[in-house]
Design a binder for these strands. Structure first.
Lengths: 212, 212, 212, 212
DNA sequence: CATGAATGAGTGTTCATTCAT
DNA sequence: AATGAATGAACACTCATTCAT
């Protein structure tokens, strides 16, 4: 309603988001250094000068892209673990598949590869990403693993390490898709890949063997 | 003796390796686009012009870095599989630990992250890397998994997918170390990480449960 | 009025001509290879980067210089031949003197020597010059000679060859002026030179002797 | 004999000439700026360093090329005029055809174009060329024209100007061959071209008309 | 005498950033 | 707010020149 009443006003407020959206696309495609601000502006349908009305520099734009991309990522994980009542294997499977649905299959999918590529050049931003995304994500998995071990469903693996070992293949699939996978190197069907990974991981975690 | 008699000559032959070594360091540190040829040359103790005596372009230098660093290792790896006579679990463990010793624990450790970061901007290089490294690496793992399944040691998993699922945590540990891990985010002790991974993976692959 | 209202705009439109004018001067002075884009830009009162707003490369700038300078003149020349009604000797004299007024006596005078010097290094440009300048220029002279022969004013000379023979002295005067003539070697007063050339050439073409 | 007895010795003395010969070819082909010393050396079958044993710089090499190319040019013209007893038209024709045989049809043919292209960059050399080649060449033609006028065979044209007017087409044919002519622009058969030129010129000079 | 590895100043080109309109 | 013309620092690459062997 109001939107339609004040389209120009709405546009003005939406601008930054439109710009970061365009920038995200390009950064994911070509990396930070490889993306020209001309192209970012063109993709957003504005002039190059306009970018500088909203962001002080290319670096500031990059930070905004990441920070904006993080919010939805964060919202994904929570709640599910506390309220879950079934088996821990199902919980782990559910959380990973949910993460996939909310990140891997959306426009945010390129963020991890982007962050990995640029972390070295933006340490401060990397720290921020670590604090707000990675630590919380690890916490989620930690609780699942600890729950499974406590309930006698999982073997007593080294939890801190297992967190990353188990998440690595999921992450790597995304990273691959936006790097070598984009260049003709074969990459897998996500569903098959996730199924195979969960099969192996849950079998690996399982305390006793009776056909997972 | 001869060396002292022909120091110029000896230098000539050693130069390419000195240059690629310097380039590897810098590429890993700052990425391909972020590395200036002036700096590469300076690090190798020569002038910028000298680089062009040995490499046609910055990209050719990059290619040489990969070629010289990774290819020989893969070739060495293939032989191991052929001659191994023990259990497939030990073979898988052995190959991965060997890979770690020769790449993960050396100055080549930064290459995977480097390739992932730059693949998008250098498709030709990515294709080359795919042909000479990835395809051969997958072949190595494929043979191990098929061997294990054929010998009744491993479950009949989806081999093509399992290859990548199993290698992803190893790869990701390196990627991590050179990206977010370098920025204060906790990363793991490699020995523990590899042990945990192999424990989970081999347990996941194992056909029957009787102490892996 | 409008000019003052949109000085930026006016500049934008005038820029390419300002740049090609500066480039023409410099190319004629120092040759193509010897002219630095920095100097071209400086002479036009802009920065080097500005050149690239209007021309894709140094070579494209060269092409624009030729295109803008010579082509319009040739187009103007064609009309003259069509509408002329007097004797062919007067037509030939008129066309050559007109060519002199519009090229030989202007800043374009250096172009023939420039093209001759650079043709070898820029085959594409040479082909372009051939198509747009030389072929059309020859056509002009061809029509005049054929007209004179058809009307019984000129002897039946080998037209195709005579075209170049007759134009050579005119061209050579310019070439000379911008090469050895510029270094203290005596060169001629253009008026005397052209008069002598036309006297000789028209006398040479004349079919019967009765005071040319 | 001696040559065969001391091939190495002969080589040593012949070196500079071999180098300038190679340089002449390249300079004519690509101009001074466009020729790389690497290529000159390669064409002469020596290393780049060797060039500097004989010539202090690229510029010095160029000067040697021109000066060496001039000696044979100078030798071409002389004597003929003094001893000639026939008609002046035949003398002019003879001298020009002789020049063509000795220069236009030899490896020296590229020198005029080269000198024209580079005169601006080597004024001192241009002056030298003027003094030793051009002035003497003009003197030759001057004497022929004056002879013809004195003997009542040629009209009383402006001799100083006519010299250049008459030689221009001959020169231009060579210049053309090494510039635009090399790039697909049509150029003429020398024999036809010279015949047409001499026909026109001698007819233009002729004092009375009775079918040349 | 001859080599060719090494140099480093120089130049075409790109692109983030600025600012007058 | 928005534009886009202009800037200039930065960098890949070239090549004449040097010099240790």
């Amino acid at each position: 309603m109001e939107a339609l009443a004040h389209p120009r006003q709405r546009r003005k407020e939406a601008r930054p988001a439109e710009l970061t959206a365009a920038a995200l696309e390009l950064f994911v495609e070509k990396g930070f250094a490889g993306s020209r601000l001309d192209d970012v502006a063109a993709r957003a349908g504005v002039s190059k000068g306009t970018l500088y009305l909203y962001f002080d520099s290319k670096e500031a734009l990059f930070k905004a892209v990441i920070q904006e991309g993080i919010v939805p990522i964060l919202e994904a994980g929570a709640g599910m673990v506390d309220s879950f009542t079934g088996g821990s294997a199902d919980l782990l499977r559910g959380v990973i598949l949910e993460w996939w649905k909310r990140i891997g299959a959306t426009s945010l999918a390129g963020v991890p590869k982007l962050m990995i590529s640029e972390a070295g050049n933006f340490p401060e931003l990397a720290a921020y990403y670590n604090d707000t995304v990675i630590i919380r994500g690890r916490e989620l998995l930690r609780r699942i693993l600890q729950r499974g071990i406590a309930r006698g469903e999982f073997r007593a693996v080294d939890v801190e390490t297992a967190i990353d070992v188990i998440f690595a293949p999921v992450l790597m699939m995304l990273v691959w898709r936006y790097s070598l996978g984009a260049c003709g190197c074969g990459s897998h069907d996500p569903a098959t890949y996730l199924r195979t990974h969960l099969d192996l991981a849950l079998n690996g975690l399982a305390v006793a063997k009776e056909q997972t």
